[in-house]
């Protein structure tokens, strides 16, 4: 399959990239690692007039600390996220979930920023960004703005990014001492999650003091299982976790496709929430 023809620019810096996007109006697409965009182009589901390749902008790559926050460049590859010592230490959930993305060759090219900006609700990382309360920093012609993950994803493959904005970094609050687990249920190796659950748990005196649960592929956007989160607060044993997990699908609108019905997805959300929270809480 051959992508449709497009013009191509490879800016050397962020400002040049933003200028190219602004000049192109609505008809430009950003190319980072290309692991989401190239499949869309090959299937001719996207017809950009201009592709802006940000893949050679060095300042967009890498992980650094800023006080209690990790700052991850949008162009940091999945492979680098998985192996980064700062991510592993302060945002273990992100490292674990990123290792579940696709396969090693895709993880060499695909980027954290690309996965989030693509906003596929079946992608693993949007729900993780929600659970972590990450902030997504976008740069446009007027400067930078930080967008909370809960406001970033607006609809299927849609975000609040304006056409002339570039996602430049992801700010993740450090979650030292929190337990975590990403549970992904997929039909075959390397496929998209039928449902995924990202759990973060802070324990206090043997009880769950606070739980944060992100849901993959339970609606048009990634979601938080807020009812389950509330029910989990104070849970002190596996039985209480199991009861709280029964509300994991509340407020969700999972889709129907060849591999699962909405009812089956709701079932998976409950089961995977129980598993993920038990593992994160060390109660398994």
């Amino acid at each position: 399959m051959i992508p449709p023809a497009f013009d191509y620019v490879r800016p050397a810096g962020v400002e040049e990239a933003v200028r190219a996007l602004a000049d192109a109006g609505e008809d430009a697409k950003v190319l980072a690692g290309g692991q989401s965009l190239l499949p869309l182009l090959r299937l001719r589901l996207a017809f950009p007039e201009l592709v802006v390749d940000v893949g050679r902008i060095p300042e967009l790559r890498g992980v650094r600390e800023d006080g209690d926050t990790l700052v991850i460049g949008a162009l940091t590859t999945h492979h680098d996220v998985v192996h980064d010592p700062l991510v592993r230490r302060h945002a273990g959930l992100l490292a674990q979930a990123t290792e579940a993305v696709a396969d090693p060759a895709v993880r060499h090219r695909g980027t954290l920023g690309g996965s989030l900006a693509h906003a596929d609700p079946a992608g693993d990382l949007p729900a993780v960004a929600l659970a972590l309360d990450a902030e997504l920093v976008a740069q446009g012609p007027g400067g930078r703005r930080a967008i909370p993950a809960r406001e970033f994803f607006t609809d299927y493959l849609q975000t609040t990014l304006a056409p002339d904005e570039l996602l430049v970094e992801i700010r993740v609050p450090k979650r030292d001492g929190w337990g975590f687990r990403y549970e992904k249920f997929a039909r075959v190796a390397q496929s998209w999650a039928m449902v995924g659950v990202a759990a973060l748990v802070r324990r206090d005196d043997g009880h769950i003091a606070e739980a944060r649960v992100g849901l993959t592929n339970m609606g048009a956007t990634p979601l938080r299982a807020t009812a389950a989160e509330e029910a989990l607060a104070g849970a002190g044993d596996a039985g209480a976790v199991a009861r709280a997990a029964e509300s994991a699908a509340e407020g969700t609108r999972p889709s129907r496709d060849a591999s699962a019905s909405p009812e089956y997805r709701a079932h998976l959300a409950r089961v995977l929430t129980k598993r993920a929270v038990l593992a994160a809480a060390g109660m398994g």
Binding site: G34, P39, R42, P104, R109
Partner: peptide
């Protein structure tokens, strides 16, 4: 497969494996 699934087209790009159906020559 032409869909980034099968890995038959895997090559090394600057020392790491990539699916060459999912990389542009300009990249």
């Amino acid at each position: 497969c032409d869909t980034s699934n099968c890995g038959a087209c895997t090559v090394e790009l600057d020392g790491v494996s990539v699916k060459s159906c999912t990389v542009l020559a300009v990249q």
